[in-house]
Design a protein around this nucleic acid. Sequence first.
DNA 1: TTGTAAGCGTTATCAT
DNA 2: ATGATAACGCTTACAA
Lengths: 342, 342
Amino acid sequence: MGKTRSAPTLNDVASHAGVSTATVSRCLNSPNQVVETTRVRVLQVIEELGYTPNFAARVMAAKRSFTIGAIIPTMDNAIFARGLQAFQNELRQNGYTLLVSSSDYKPEIEKEQIRALVARGADGLLLIGHERENEIYDYLKRHQVPALVAWSYLPDARQPSVGFSNRDAMFALAQDVINTGHRRIAMISGVTAGNDRAQRRVQGVRDALQANGICADDMRVIETTYEIDSGAHAFRDLMSRTPRPTAIICGNDVLAVGALREARRMDVSVPDEVSITGFDDIELAEIASPALTTVHVPHREMGRKAAQELIAMVNGTSKGVSTCIDTHIVYRASLATPPNGA
Amino acid sequence: MGKTRSAPTLNDVASHAGVSTATVSRCLNSPNQVVETTRVRVLQVIEELGYTPNFAARVMAAKRSFTIGAIIPTMDNAIFARGLQAFQNELRQNGYTLLVSSSDYKPEIEKEQIRALVARGADGLLLIGHERENEIYDYLKRHQVPALVAWSYLPDARQPSVGFSNRDAMFALAQDVINTGHRRIAMISGVTAGNDRAQRRVQGVRDALQANGICADDMRVIETTYEIDSGAHAFRDLMSRTPRPTAIICGNDVLAVGALREARRMDVSVPDEVSITGFDDIELAEIASPALTTVHVPHREMGRKAAQELIAMVNGTSKGVSTCIDTHIVYRASLATPPNGA
DNA sequence: TTGTAAGCGTTATCAT
DNA sequence: ATGATAACGCTTACAA
């Protein structure tokens, strides 16, 4: 008995309201083109039937989805969370929906996700960092999907970006570390392969050493994944050498917190025996003890501006303008003068 | 000159390969139904043209998208990150793509996101917690989109769930706090309105007090948003009363870490003057100092099992079976016996 | 094994 | 202001 009622379509609404499908469509998309009386009636039927448009059909017909996709390396820590939240808020206010997926820092997965999002009709994409196969950019171009890069600012890259100069930010931090008196500086970096942000952060440190007459080639750099455990492991490794570094600059706060944890376990005092710095200034940085000296990245501002620019690109209002966001250093307890005699 | 080359379609592939669109489609979806020689040729053309199927069209025709949607309350902290990552990994291995969106703990936004995901053809949905308008469940039923609830286990709820008993987990923790000697216990809870997990955690504490002959009505409970700052603020509030509580049970690790931070600022020693506990056991819990005694939730296991169950539901293999995941308590430095004379 | 053709639920172009 | 109707790109009976 009672036949299974399945999702109503535009057609159902049209017949119930005694109008054509075109009229119903107009009620939804350009309400002012339809006279009040019929509009009210149609809207009522829509309500009664609990109708919601089928996006697949809509996308196919309109070639527009009001959906933006973002592919981030990981959701596993807070690095991208805050910026993305701001990005989403701004999109929402402009009638766009954000769909996120994460690549686990793996280029092949990222490629797959990009295709998935484009195939699902994303009007535009937010990508993290510049470095990826040209094939991907060709694909996006062919499909005419604008893409904006964030978390990195490179003025003359192929894609427009809203971000900051990873190299300059790290240079400034390293300069401060040097000014504090450190000479034996080591670094725990994220994996640099395929990650221009990580590469440039290392470069920033190198350049600062060079600029201060310290031989950058001597600097020990350990590359590892952006995880607390990895940071911890790298710290132990670094501290088992002689002479020990007096300061360890970490590629981000997660690594730095891992280093801090290991220091506690090894009973190495921070910052008395060794200074540690981070990058990003996520909540972890303030919570850690000692709290981390780190580079503050205005994530929310970056997210908001990225959304605005990407929307403009999708609208055709902008061809893609790059914006550089300022970062600054936050001084906390983890950085201090090196131990005497170091 | 040179005409603008836009994305190739099935049709383009078909004509270049000298076959019908049906054959091309079969090459992609059921390769064994087409003879090797033609398959190779078709695949080659696909490669040459850089063809990728249009999902909107595919979804419309096949009524299947191999996409799963998840709506989580927030990406702003790591609470949902780990479980979601495991969820996504499992989905990927089974050929599904995960699309995530976040509701910022707002029911209206969540409703909107659910509709967005369903409209985009999601085959199934992962939802956090049970409590939401019935209208939403009706909507999902009407659209025949299976939904699984996670982060909460309620055997006789309308929706199947893969999660844990928030009430029992918190009961056990509260019992431990009491066993440690505490009697003046206060609580910092997340907002309970519309959040069954928060509600049940409070209930767990109440029940434990009752079970030990302590009047639960006297317990001070502050409800606030799940943010570090909120936890800090609530802590200050709680500690400004006389007599002060000797233990503060927090609704999750984020709140507890906020409390810890404020304790440091107020120069209140934890756990000497007051004990603090968390819930979730995210990385923050171990990093905090003192490290948090908290309820460990096996997020990865939950994510993995949720993915398996949801896939089964989408396949029609399962009508939705609920699973209860075991939690356990992790003892760290933030919980100790109450101060003498308390 | 392969081709033909009828949808799938919209939007958009023309008419009216 | 409204109605027909042709796309949109793909899947899938059904035929051959």
